[in-house]
């Protein structure tokens, strides 16, 4: 093989497309009842029972600074295996809908945009242009989970401040 090929799974948050490497996705679940954990930050929706283990569920929309998720027919949980502080942890993220699995050659991935982008480039591995001309953002999910802050960049100073403010609360 000349080129390294990686598979990604794409999903929708609002009107935007994101993708995560399939090597980090363990499972796709239908929405079930989530037990809320009081005193936790709002984007941490709670826990569910995944075949006898307790799985934390994250509202990734809120983590990205979007509105909280509205549960709909297409809402699913992506079960991910992420590395937080050198430790493997399973966690679920709520997404509006799952689109497809697709293969990308390494050199087709464009570097994350610099200034002027909506999301912090350190959380984005790259950008890929789909066949239908839509752009999909390939996420570095480990970094997203390791960070306590809200991921959105728009006004980075503000969001960082509000994240710290939240902690003090």
């Amino acid at each position: 093989m000349d080129q390294e090929i990686d598979s990604f799974i794409s999903f929708k948050l609002g009107e935007e497309y994101f993708a995560i490497s399939v090597s980090q996705v363990l499972n796709i679940l239908q929405l079930v009842q989530i037990t809320k954990v009081p005193t936790a930050p709002d984007y941490m929706k709670g826990v569910i029972n995944l075949r006898g283990t307790v799985l934390p569920i994250i509202d990734i929309r809120m983590k990205f600074g979007m509105d909280p998720i509205q549960y709909q027919r297409d809402t699913v949980i992506l079960v991910l295996n992420v590395i937080i502080e050198n430790e493997k942890v399973d966690a679920g993220i709520l997404v509006d809908s799952v689109k497809e699995v697709f293969e990308i050659k390494k050199d087709e991935i464009m570097p994350p945009p610099g200034i002027g982008s909506k999301y912090k480039s350190k959380f984005i591995e790259g950008i890929y242009k789909m066949s239908d001309e839509k752009f999909v953002m390939l996420l570095d999910i480990d970094k997203i989970f390791s960070s306590d802050e809200v991921v959105m960049l728009k006004e980075s100073v503000d969001s960082e401040e509000s994240a710290t403010a939240k902690e003090i609360e």
């Binding site: 009842q33 037990t35 954990v37 009081p38 005193t39 936790a40 941490m44 709670g46 826990v47 569910i48 029972n49 006898g52 283990t53 307790v54 799985l55 934390p56 994250i58 937080i84 502080e85 430790e87 942890v89 399973d90 966690a91 989970f145």
Partner: peptide, 27 residues
């Protein structure tokens, strides 16, 4: 008793979770 996991380590008022007969989770 099941651990709540690393992500909920700040929430130490809960020593863990347990799965109930109907499959839901109790804290």
């Amino acid at each position: 008793l099941k651990p709540l996991g690393k992500l909920y380590r700040q929430q130490d008022v809960f020593s863990g979770a347990s799965i109930l007969g109907d499959g839901t989770v109790a804290l």
